Simulated scan of single mutants.
Amino acid sequence: MVPQEMTEICNKRMMAALNMEKPDRIPILFSGHCYYNFIDPTMVMADFWRRPKLVDENLIKAAELPILKEIDSPPMVSLGMPAETKHQSFAAKWFAKMKVPGRELPENALWQISEQGPMTEEDYDTIINKGWNYLKQELLKRIGFDPDALPKPDIDYGKKLQVKVAALGKQNIGRAGGMLPFPPFEVLSGARKLPKFFRDLYRIPDKVRAALDIVEDECVEESAKLIDAIPGEYGFIGGTRAGCDFISSKVFEKFYFPYYRKLVPMMHKKNVKAWLHMDGNWELFLHYFAEFPKASCVWDPDHITDIRKIKEILGDKMCITGNVPPALTSVGTPEDCYNYARDLVELFKDDGGFIMNSGCSVPPNAKRENVEAVVLATLGK
């Protein structure tokens, strides 16, 4: 079977799950997999900055290993984007800076977002009077973020990598819009720093809500433009610190969920699914998301929210991914990983709309035999 035919099978499998239909088998989509050390155990996280081409090469080699080749998702190669540019731009979405392994951190440490908190209480008025885009540019200046000063992408190298990845025959379901704006509640909590922002919610709630109305509307408009510019089947939306382990239902209803009521319908009209990547515990808030049209969203949890509760409340409304804990693949045994994955298969076997996935991401220290066990369990071997 040629790679293009394999990709078509993987895409059909993925789209069936996303549309809550039963595919030929459960798709396997491991997020954030850093399998470079399956090829060279001496490699460390700092190599993403120091030896990116070697990381790319080993990620592609790992995708061709026995058993791992059954994973439907492609390896997360750089596509020519320097790690410094990618990660500093990512951190800047919260008006933060990125601490880098091998520089500010030990060589094999995970990169870490370091919040700067450049936004003042007076800046709520700036948003209300001058708009979010005006303040956003000002906040980036305050933290010293200059995108033009970052390393430029290597476009020619990126094209060559695309050819190598295509030869693997993995799914290539597109992410619409690239990196969509994150929920304004989350962004402002980073801009203000979390303790100050949470105090604002109680000290000046009406002003925060008025500012959020403006930020939300601008973010929905920006998302619509990005989706039109970069077509795809789903749009990624990250939820990080607004679950029920962070805020009350009252705060969630007033300050967080209104954004989803604006964003998801817009995406649905454009035939783009909202991929809701939800870190933390959302158990008490799951029922809010059941109001959206069937198959218009994907619930992508980490391992904290009980997946049985997710299935109970959202199982007939949206595709669910799940949710092998990162700790299990890093410090567990192959038997532990196999049994966990088999339990997931049993839970969803009679329904469509399930994708086998890691909880958030497969950690860099995941053991190869543990990842293989999850794959084998999904395949029923």
Results as ranks from 00 to 15, higher is better:
380 G>Q: 04
241 R>W: 11
190 G>R: 04
352 G>K: 11
347 L>N: 00
275 W>F: 15
328 L>E: 01
200 D>L: 09
31 S>N: 15
20 M>C: 12
154 D>G: 05
10 C>N: 13
157 Y>N: 05
271 N>D: 13
264 V>W: 00
6 M>R: 15
225 K>I: 11
123 D>L: 05
157 Y>W: 06
33 H>F: 12
242 A>G: 06
223 S>I: 04
122 E>A: 11
377 A>D: 02
52 P>F: 03
82 P>Q: 12
43 M>K: 14
224 A>F: 01
295 A>F: 04
254 K>W: 11
159 K>I: 09
19 N>P: 02
9 I>V: 15
151 P>V: 08
260 Y>Q: 05
99 K>N: 12
327 A>H: 11
232 G>R: 06
121 E>Y: 09
328 L>T: 02
130 K>P: 01
83 A>E: 09
296 S>L: 01
280 G>E: 03
155 I>T: 13
202 Y>K: 14
129 N>G: 09
147 P>C: 10
246 F>T: 13
45 M>I: 07
179 M>L: 13
139 L>P: 03
188 L>H: 07
62 A>F: 02
367 K>S: 09
311 K>Y: 08
35 Y>G: 15
163 V>R: 15
227 I>H: 02
140 L>C: 06
4 Q>I: 15
176 A>N: 04
320 I>A: 00
187 V>Q: 02
113 I>P: 03
74 P>W: 06
11 N>D: 13
30 F>P: 00
107 E>F: 09
154 D>C: 05
175 R>A: 15
197 F>V: 08
364 P>M: 09
52 P>Y: 01
8 E>C: 10
254 K>A: 14
34 C>H: 13
314 L>D: 04
260 Y>A: 07
89 S>Q: 09
273 K>A: 03
345 V>A: 10
379 L>Q: 08
375 V>R: 00
379 L>Y: 00
332 G>K: 02
75 P>C: 05
350 D>Q: 10
201 L>Q: 07
128 I>D: 01
39 I>N: 10
338 Y>D: 06
209 R>Y: 11
58 N>S: 00
369 E>H: 09
289 F>K: 01
192 R>W: 03
